[in-house]
């Protein structure tokens, strides 16, 4: 037995929030993308309920354009921790003609995730969706509450948010509403990476430097994958040592040049880096208000 528990303010806050979710809601779910933020959430949830298992399932909204490394990682994690995993596919909605796939140079399935997520919330009757969004990621997210109420259509009304005083969380909702919960709201990208390092948490291999066929566009490096990622004829493919800072949809996640082969290198790189994480996501560049618009539509 150890003597005194050293506490970590951000970790304590996140665990407190996760406990509140389990206590205040009937049917919570953890939105799992396979990225480092949602992997961190899984670790926090594991800590919160230990020695019991995490008392809610994970939901992955699969765009069908994920990096195969992410999917493999996801399946291993779920198996190892004995968790329940629900997967819903954007492809199914496309096949059913319910949503229309974008085409052309900047085509991405990111926007289409919203529909599939809302369908899944309705199908299972989830009343709380735990997500890994952080307030430092994007200006509009800076105002997001920890418990953020969404209406029946998944809409976020930024002008009518509940005040959150002290650490008291009010999760009362009407039938049909649900709450998006952000336990790591106050973490920065560096906080997440430092935590992964300190805890020795495993993450998908694409976060580390590796050799990959890529091409350049708009000064960013893209994974060359003819099946998922549109490429113009004059956009030449070559091999490069790169890594990814986020693991979203292949078609909208840019790589960065890197020699960070192990976690310590990644943390150092982040500490010294000068491009914000979302700078490497092409769909946010479309417009400054992109995130806010997507959020109003129910995107995470």
């Amino acid at each position: 037995m150890k003597n005194i528990l050293e506490n970590n303010a951000l970790e304590n806050e996140a665990i407190f929030i996760i406990h509140e979710v389990a206590a205040q809601f009937e049917k919570p779910v953890l939105l799992f993308s396979g990225g480092k933020d949602s992997i961190t959430l899984v670790r926090l949830a594991q800590k919160a309920f230990y020695p019991a298992k995490i008392p809610f399932p994970l939901l992955h909204v699969d765009t069908g354009h994920n990096f195969p490394e992410t999917i493999e990682f996801r399946d291993n994690l779920v198996e190892e921790l004995g968790l329940e995993l629900i997967v819903r596919n954007v492809q199914d909605n496309i096949d059913a003609g319910r949503v229309k796939e974008e085409t052309g140079k900047y085509a991405s399935r990111n926007m289409l995730q919203t529909e599939t997520l809302l369908d899944a919330i309705e199908e299972f009757g989830f009343d709380a969706c735990i997500g890994g969004a952080r307030r430092d990621e994007e200006k509009a997210r800076a105002k997001e509450r920890i418990f953020s109420v969404r209406d029946d259509f998944g809409q976020w009304d930024e002008k009518n948010q509940r005040p959150e005083v002290f650490d008291m969380l009010n999760g009362r909702i009407d039938l049909g509403q649900n709450v998006r919960v952000f336990p790591i709201s106050n973490w920065t990208e560096l906080d997440v990476w430092s935590y992964i390092e300190k805890e020795g948490i495993e993450i998908p291999s694409i976060y580390f430097a590796h050799k990959r066929p890529v091409f350049e566009r708009d000064g960013l490096i893209w994974s060359a994958n003819d099946e998922y990622v549109y490429r113009e004829n004059d956009e030449l493919v070559y091999e490069k040592i790169v890594r990814f800072r986020t693991v979203g949809d292949m078609s909208c996640t840019a790589a960065v040049e890197s020699n960070a082969f192990i976690i310590e290198d990644v943390v150092r790189e982040i500490r010294e880096s000068k491009i914000s994480e979302r700078g490497a996501r092409i769909d946010d560049k479309r417009s400054e208000a992109a995130m806010e618009k997507r959020k109003q539509q129910g995107y995470f």
Partner: peptide, 19 residues
């Protein structure tokens, strides 16, 4: 007992989330 994840502690300070 005071549990934090898979470890036990003799004492825990204010601010800690524990079981």
């Amino acid at each position: 007992e005071i549990h934090f994840f898979n470890e036990q502690f003799q004492s825990a300070k204010r601010g800690s989330s524990v079981t």
